[in-house]
Amino acid sequence: MFSDFSFAALAAILAGTAIVILLSGLRMTSLADRLADRTGLGEAMVGAVLLGAATSISGTIVSVTAALDERASLAFSNGIGGIAVQTAFLALADILHRKANLEHAAAELANVFQGTVLMLMLALPFVAYTLPEFAIWGVHPVSVLLVAVYAVGLLAVREVRETPMWRPVRTHETREDEPEEDDPEPRSTLALFTVFAALMLIMAAAGWTLSRAAAELTDRYALNASVVGALVTAVITSLPELVTTLAAIRRGALQMAVGGIIGGNTFDVLFITLSDAGYRNGSIYHAIGRDDLFWLTAGLTMTAILVLGMLYRQRRGPAGIGLESVLILAVYGFAIAVQAF
């Protein structure tokens, strides 16, 4: 079907899916904040699990669809490229939060712990790549291990939040996670979850459409699938993270802003597991190329800088933002330059 469309039509489809994903993500932010207060789970937990997974649904569909079409590079780089751009979004959000370095003001042990889990998960695909090609029913054991690490990590994050063994030092700039006393939302919690689920379905449909359009552009113009995945589909499907992060900061939900990015990135690593299951020509880890591993390296480096920034908690850095934000943007800019030229 998409092969009959002109370039202008395909470009319009990309723009249309971006708008749908953007608006859906914006609405999800306010719903997630209300649900965090009503369920008592807290902004960091809801941001990492509910909001992080929900805003990643369009990217999930893109990777799975690409894998089913035997486009290993597009499937892999879409998820990993999303991790890089979403981490860069957090650095951009730091620029907008002028009171203090965002990583300082949003001090939360759950986010630090989740960040280290993310680094572990990003390291595992390297292990799979260096091992001999092996798969059980078409799925590499590392893909299963990624799911296990993610599940254990979620349980551990909740335990860390409820019974922390250490707490960040509270300063004048630190923003506490406190439920809002007035809840202007008249609908029940079940109704909020229902609306949230409906938005996820809309984003899933947008993700499928985006995957088909991107695949057609890649084939028609002989584009590098890794670049298309990391810099086109990954950026478009990551727009909810940008919107939700900026909206959360505007609402004062700083811990949700940071937790949403880290949680979304952690969930995005599972794109690899789903892509491996969808890719039927063996292990996807041995069907990818150096360009895909390059984006995996960039994402891991940017995540390490972010976690170090959350631990160091610099109050103010260059241009009024944290040094880690400057470094994250520098790494991402360098990665784009290397891939583009």
Rank of each mutant, 00 (worst) to 15 (best):
S3A: 12
D4C: 11
A15Q: 11
T17M: 10
I19F: 13
L22H: 13
L23F: 12
S30Y: 13
L31P: 06
R34D: 15
T39F: 10
A44G: 13
M45F: 10
V46F: 05
A53V: 11
T55N: 09
L74Q: 08
L74R: 06
F76C: 06
F76E: 08
S77N: 06
G79I: 03
G79C: 02
G81E: 08
T87R: 05
A88F: 14
D94C: 02
H97D: 10
L102R: 13
A106W: 07
E108V: 08
L109D: 01
L120N: 03
L122D: 04
P141G: 01
G153Q: 03
L155S: 09
A156W: 02
V157M: 08
T163H: 07
R170F: 00
H172P: 00
H172Y: 01
P179N: 03
E181S: 08
E185C: 07
E185D: 14
L199V: 11
L201G: 10
W208A: 11
A214Q: 06
A215H: 13
E216F: 08
R220C: 02
A222G: 02
V227C: 11
L231F: 04
T233R: 04
T233F: 01
A234W: 03
V235D: 04
I236T: 09
T237R: 05
A253V: 10
G259Y: 01
G264F: 06
N265D: 14
T266F: 00
F267S: 15
D268G: 07
L270S: 07
D276A: 03
G278V: 03
G278H: 09
Y279G: 08
R280M: 02
I288W: 14
G289C: 10
D292G: 12
D292N: 13
W295N: 11
A298H: 13
L300F: 12
T301W: 12
L306E: 04
L308W: 12
Q314F: 05
R316T: 00
R316I: 00
I321M: 04
S325N: 05
V331Q: 04
Y332I: 10
A335G: 14
Q339R: 15
A340L: 15
